[in-house]
Amino acid sequence: MAQKFDGRLFEGWSEKLTRRLASGTSRRGVLSRVGLALAAAPAFPLLPIDRSRAHAATTPRLTEFQKNAQVTDDTRCNYWRYCAIDGSLCSCCGGGVHSCPPGTQPSLTSWVGTCYNPADKRSYLIAYRDCCGTSSCRQCHCDNTDGALPTYRPQANNEIIWCFGTSSMAYHCSTAALVGVAE
């Protein structure tokens, strides 16, 4: 009995509600409002979700040097391995990116830093070993400073001549030898 009574009561309420809605609205009115809502939706901003972290996770923040770095010509200052080189490029002085010109001696000490390779998007440890023993080559002088620090952190300063331990402290040019991949 109770079930029958409840069913009738609900039926009555819903009928009353539907009739009131039908008398107060028109089909065209509903359509126009829905259409207006659809058209206006893009004009309002979406929910304020912070996407900055997701973006940072996929794209590393690049330095000015990294934005302009290239991987094809190691005789130009913007070659990716030269991110913190200060001096003449041995590639322009008869040597190579990791070899000294004939008649010069590679330094045993060096400036070590990390450079980002845009081709494979990995960071590599690069050692800027100086070639020593003859006067400066003076070709292709570059001064990039990604990660370089002032002389109060001498091991991270790229203005130092690293010819310690060689027979002469005379600086000729700098190489950019690849040490390995930085983890």
Binding site: V112, V179, A182
Partner: peptide
Amino acid sequence: VTFNHAQTNYMLHCGGCHGT
């Protein structure tokens, strides 16, 4: 070669003077 975290830190903080 890929270096682990300790090796990388050695290269960056010591390897310049003490050699890689």
